[in-house]
Design a protein around this nucleic acid. Structure first.
Lengths: 340, 340
DNA sequence: ACGGTTGTCGTAAACGTTTTCCGTAAACGT
DNA sequence: ACGTTTACGGAAAACGTTTACGACAACCGT
């Protein structure tokens, strides 16, 4: 592994000049620069990241915290991967690297996040699965560490960029659609705990029911982990009530798959005996039979946009007008299929 | 952000002593150490990672390269996440951090991998989705960079730790089982390109067919991307042959879902009109109806074990007997369900 | 001929650690 | 009382960069 010193010695030139040549600064002779570039290629030189980071006081990297849902083993992976693809692509355009940090399951103190922040692994972090009250956001704002979130939260005020999907509107639309198709007993399955998107979804669900003059029956609202098991376990309870629903809205596709399995085991055919609607579809809804009607987020553009928003909020990357805090809420697109 | 100097100044002590106290070295007075520890907590000190890495010449991190399948946008995410959970847990026990590096789609030159290696982002890398001839492995062995692979390859000899699943055996078992149930026309759907596990699976498939005295019909072997679309596109071709199969073995669950959708659209019921078997099931097989018979890998233990193997191969982490190159092949467990 | 500008490059400090080497003082053995 | 060991901690070098500063020469205009 050759260092900048080797390069300088080899060219009989000072390391300062080598560094300037490599970093494309103006005050170096064109011919000298070319010699340096050639030698760098020949000696297979590439700068040591630690040395560079230490000197710059910055890492030029952004960390995405891939944290499991508390109490659960799931990471919501099929959702995040396209999102991360967009995030990474957009960050790369500004010369930033994306690293994904896996939080250990059951990391209630957000120890990994603290580690990233305290040891300056990255210059900024991106959070997902925001909760209604989110200690991570409190921590980051208090530490003055740059970050952006996928999802809103009540914590931290409006001091950070946040990009969210309009779960409330999707909840309203889902109910409207089912009511228009003649349903009166509509159930909702949301995540356990206080994930904010579950809260928003349920708010929309309630609002729409009331607007249609329908009662909000607590027996028709179920909660479970955001995975197949969660949907599988709650669905029989919903269907077992004295006045069972004729339609169920699941908060995401994994839950819906589990719910449909439970329905089948009860001798009910999803989409025929019970209508099924899914709020967040990653990829699965289309492959079930019957294909499930769902609301689909544009994940890759979401990632790109959040990168832009994060950068716009960071003084060192913001444009000439200075840093700006951008907050946006994007619609969820309805994909009508065969299950309702 | 306080540095070790602040700490030293605050305690009227040299930075060397502070460092020694923090790192638990023996030659520091117990009382002094306690004072340092207390002050560190009070001043909210934590060591700067760049400075530490620079000095040590090591990062104490392992990078997992999450690379999309060439020509495809998929990362195989539901497969990798549990694997990564195990990997991270085991690495953490040796004080190593795991970072996941996203390769950009279409990164044919493995530019991200080079970047990780050349700038020493991590002390070692973990590769997955090994190909039969794998340039990444050639590159890493030639560069003398520590690595381990999930999956075998013909490249690089036996000079690196590799942990793989026994796809060949699974291919044999799948055919045996279908033959025992009366099938004679058995199709196989494998990934396109030369991913090694597809090769192994097909080898087992062929071997078993021959052992049963059945012909290996090229019309019954299909290839596609390892995702829903891949299975969806190839299945009609398979079923459209003059003498269509009565059973299909898919190389993974995503392909199988796509294939089943195609079957349904052709008016065929999976598990009834056509038997379906899946070699690599991540989570989906159980939720389809009928639930798909599949071979299931133990992903989380796989990750843990590969971490052990990687560490055992690195001189700085190996035990007293010195570094060892371990290679293992693990069985895939059959989960019999309702689709065959 | 002389001050001022411009272009090019070398020197050295700085980033925050860890670790080697040494110095001091106390404790010990004879 | 003397030399030897032990325990502790300070000084400073080193890791590989980037960059502020200054040096020097060449060129310009007057």
């Amino acid at each position: 592994m050759s260092s900048i010193h080797d390069l300088a010695r080899h060219l009989n030139i000072s390391i300062g000049t080598v560094s300037r040549a490599l970093n494309g600064r103006a005050d170096v002779n064109a011919e000298t620069r070319q010699r340096v570039l050639d030698a760098a290629r020949r000696l297979n030189y590439s700068p040591n990241q630690s040395g560079r980071n230490l000197r710059r006081g910055a890492t030029h990297a952004v960390a995405f915290m891939l944290q499991p849902h508390p109490g659960d083993q799931q990471y919501g992976e099929p959702f995040f991967i396209p999102f991360l693809t967009g995030l990474q692509a957009q960050l790369a355009e500004s010369g930033l690297d994306l690293i994904v940090v896996m939080g250990a399951p059951g990391d209630y103190q957000h120890e990994r996040l603290r580690r990233v922040v305290e040891t300056r692994w990255a210059d900024a972090v991106v959070l997902a699965w925001t909760r209604r009250e989110d200690e991570r956001i409190e921590y980051l704002t208090q530490a003055g560490f740059p970050f952006a979130t996928l999802g809103r939260s009540r914590s931290g005020g409006k001091s950070y960029p946040a990009l969210d999907l309009d779960f409330e509107k999707a909840g309203v639309d889902a109910v409207d659609r089912l009511v228009a198709r003649g349903h009166r007993r509509i159930a909702a399955v949301r995540p356990s705990l206080n994930l904010n998107f579950g809260y928003l979804f349920l708010a929309g669900y309630r609002k729409a029911l009331r607007r249609h003059g329908l009662e909000v029956d607590p027996d028709l609202i179920g909660a479970g982990f955001i995975n197949e098991a969660g949907g599988y376990e709650i669905t029989p309870q919903l269907m077992g009530s004295s006045n069972p629903p004729t339609a169920i809205i699941f908060n995401n596709d994994a839950m819906a798959l589990g719910g449909c399995r439970a329905l089948v085991e009860m001798g009910l055919k999803p989409g025929h005996d019970v209508a099924v609607t899914v709020i967040v579809d990653t990829a699965l809804c289309r492959y079930y039979s019957p294909a499930l009607t769902s609301f689909r987020p544009a994940l890759e553009p979401l990632g790109r946009r959040l990168a832009e928003m994060l950068l716009a909020s960071m003084p060192s990357f913001a444009g000439p007008d200075g840093p700006r805090i951008i907050r946006e809420v994007w619609p969820l697109e309805l994909v009508a299929r065969d299950s309702d």
